[in-house]
């Protein structure tokens, strides 16, 4: 028996919003520790890694490991039926071929349940090694979203260059070029609004705008985003979801032929 209850359905709605442009289907792996999802986009350029810890749920029970293959379009349809303030409970029997979502309004006057068929997905999982990154950049997630949106008007790629002076995001295309430089916040009064740069080695890497824009769909999950970079390895874009876990996106760089 698997049962996981969240007081706010909005977290699950936002998680789905954050992955549905990249993935059409995905496997939710549930065990004692919580719910995990790892999946690559169709072109195998980006990867989503989601963790929702058991202790972040209002109620969590998982007697046996459960693997639930879900069509994310169908899941989106179902979650649209939940009010933001509704609680949501996901339930599945051991070895079941369906999952049930139960939505309860705050006063419990309205209770609805939606049963969805599960899919047998044979998706490839990648082993991601523990990596010490040369640069990590923390910044307000809304600022990152704004930059990606602004720069993608000019070019298809964004060059991210991190040095001891700060971090620079650049692009160029038919109409011209654009650069945005961010320096580390001088005095940190509010951590959520700070730009914090840790750099061991300077790194410059180039990434596809389109994917960075997909990642920013997670903006509402966290006030801050962290970018981790090392030379010639995928970028990690991490949004920590308060009290419950994180969503990490990995993006393969573009390189000179």
């Amino acid at each position: 028996m698997f049962e996981a209850r969240l007081l706010k359905s909005s977290i699950l709605k936002k998680v789905l919003e954050a992955i549905k442009d990249l993935l059409t289907q995905a496997t939710f792996d549930c065990d004692d520790n919580g719910i995990q999802l790892q999946a690559m986009d169709n072109s195998h350029v980006a990867l989503v890694s989601l963790l929702l810890r058991a202790d972040g749920f209002d109620k969590y029970r998982c007697d046996r490991n459960v693997t639930m293959g879900m069509n994310l379009g169908s899941m989106t349809k179902i979650l649209k039926c939940a009010g933001d303030k509704d609680t949501v409970t996901m339930k599945a029997q051991d070895n079941a071929d369906t999952v049930t979502f139960v939505f309860e309004s705050p006063n419990q006057e309205k209770v609805s349940d939606y049963e969805m068929k599960l899919m047998n997905l044979d998706l490839e999982h990648l082993g991601i090694p523990e990596t010490e990154y040369s640069c990590t950049i923390r910044m307000p997630s809304a600022e990152f979203a704004r930059m990606c949106r602004d720069l993608s008007q000019f070019g298809e790629s964004i060059v991210i260059s991190c040095t001891k002076e700060g971090v620079k995001f650049s692009t160029s295309g038919d109409i011209g070029s654009a650069n945005i430089k961010l320096a580390q916040t001088a005095s940190i009064d509010k951590e959520d609004e700070a730009v914090i740069i840790e750099m061991d080695e300077p790194v410059t890497l180039t990434f596809a705008c389109q994917y960075l824009n997909y990642f920013t769909k997670a903006t509402s999950l966290s006030p801050q985003v962290q970018l981790s970079m090392s030379a010639d390895v995928p970028l990690v874009v991490e949004y920590r979801i308060p009290d419950i876990g994180h969503i990490r996106y990995y993006l393969a760089p573009k390189i000179e032929e």
Binding site: V45, G127, P234, K254
Partner: peptide
């Protein structure tokens, strides 16, 4: 010109 790499050139299948 730049080429988009794939994740599999960095991470190994499990």
């Amino acid at each position: 010109s730049l080429t988009q790499t794939k994740l599999k050139s960095f991470f190994t299948p499990k």
